[in-house]
Amino acid sequence: MASIVSRVLFGRRHNASGQTPDPAKVAEPVTTFPSPNFKESVKYLAYGSNLSAETFLGRRGIKPLSQVKVRVPSLTLSFDLAGIPYKEPRFANVRPREEEDQELMGVVYEVTPEDYRKILTTEGGYSVIEVTCIPLEPVKGMDSFESKTLIVPGKGTRTTHEGLPSLRYLNLLIKGARQHSLPPQYQDYIANTGYYEARTIRQKVGSVAVLLTVLPVVIFLFGIRNFVSDKDGKAPKWLNDAQVFCFGQIWNLYDYVWKPLYGDGESTRHSVKKADEVVANAGPATETDALLVKAEEVTAVNWREPESSQA
């Protein structure tokens, strides 16, 4: 049953072997960065759940040519992409960095054009932008380089309401940061965001009720998307519109029905200061996490702009 769900969610090209790559091995570059095909390859910056080996190489089935950890002075990490109330209130996004902000850190994967199209297919949405990346460790003959990354612009975010990621999602980011040996201070910075926790009986009942309402929508919409998208990962406009409408209605339901009934489902904060606290509090990953991963992709759908229009 689990493999059937994964195929529905992640498409016909999903890695269905059931084998999750060893994170210790995945974190090692396939070849020395940059690869011999650097000019022809696509450079893709991961900063959120794609830092995790289980997500990027396991469920998405991507095979990087090489990889390098970087900092991005022009961007900062933000959690303003609305997901599922009570369960996954916010997902990672980026925004332009202001003076007091922590600069973004992540990993740039060198991938083939075919694997890049697969990334766009499995991500479901976002706008593609190019940013300047600076390697965290010296790379011979290269002080900086340009890379593509994904962002949800303001119209696709819920910035007018405070919101937090779940413990599951925060742990996924920290695990990815650890697999790639990003600086401990940056890992603690991610952890210091804190996470949403359903504390009252009302909130816990709401968590179950809302999840049972939303997950069938996620499975249905992405089951369709994987079969009607073209080779570049672009779905028909009618499907994009349907997904945006459905998730807009979910948050309308939250604002006007679920929140008055079940209480706060996006900003009840559990504070932590260190990455170790997040890892210690998080439970083991399960196959149902795949459903929650897809929720992130659904919420971002329809915000990707044509690459030719990006700076």
Rank of each mutant, 00 (worst) to 15 (best):
N50D: 06
N50K: 01
N50S: 03
L51W: 14
L51D: 11
S52E: 08
S52R: 13
S52G: 01
A53Q: 07
A53M: 09
A53L: 09
A53I: 06
A53R: 06
E54A: 12
E54I: 00
E54T: 07
E54L: 05
T55S: 06
F56V: 00
F56N: 08
F56A: 10
L57Y: 10
L57F: 12
G58R: 07
G58D: 02
G58K: 06
G58P: 12
R59F: 10
R59Y: 11
R59M: 03
R60K: 02
R60Q: 05
R60H: 10
R60E: 01
G61V: 10
G61Y: 03
G61E: 05
I62D: 05
I62G: 01
K63V: 05
K63P: 00
P64C: 02
P64D: 01
L65F: 05
L65P: 05
S66P: 09
S66R: 03
S66W: 01
Q67E: 08
Q67T: 13
Q67H: 14
V68D: 02
V68L: 09
V68N: 04
V70P: 09
V70E: 06
V70H: 13
V70K: 11
V72E: 08
V72F: 10
P73D: 02
P73H: 00
S74E: 14
S74M: 02
L75V: 03
L75Q: 15
L75I: 00
L75S: 05
T76M: 08
T76K: 15
T76F: 03
T76W: 05
L77Y: 06
L77W: 06
L77I: 11
L77S: 06
L77D: 04
L77N: 02
S78A: 15
S78T: 15
S78M: 08
S78V: 14
S78E: 14
S78F: 03
S78R: 14
S78P: 00
S78D: 15
D80E: 14
D80C: 10
D80H: 06
D80P: 01
D80I: 01
L81G: 01
L81V: 11
L81E: 01
L81N: 02
L81C: 03
A82H: 10
G83A: 04
G83T: 01
I84M: 15
I84Y: 02
I84R: 00
I84A: 02
P85S: 13
P85L: 15
Y86L: 07
Y86W: 06
Y86H: 12
E88H: 11
E88V: 01
E88I: 00
R90S: 09
R90M: 14
R90Q: 07
R90I: 00
F91A: 07
F91N: 02
A92N: 03
N93K: 12
N93R: 11
N93S: 13
N93L: 09
N93A: 08
V94G: 10
R95Q: 15
P96S: 11
P96H: 12
R97P: 04
R97W: 09
R97Q: 07
E98G: 04
E98D: 07
E99R: 12
E99V: 10
E99W: 04
E99D: 08
E100N: 04
D101T: 09
D101Q: 07
Q102G: 00
Q102W: 02
Q102Y: 01
Q102K: 08
L104R: 12
L104V: 11
L104K: 12
L104G: 09
M105K: 15
M105P: 03
M105E: 13
V107E: 08
V107M: 09
V108S: 06
V108F: 08
Y109Q: 07
E110V: 04
E110L: 04
E110S: 02
E110T: 03
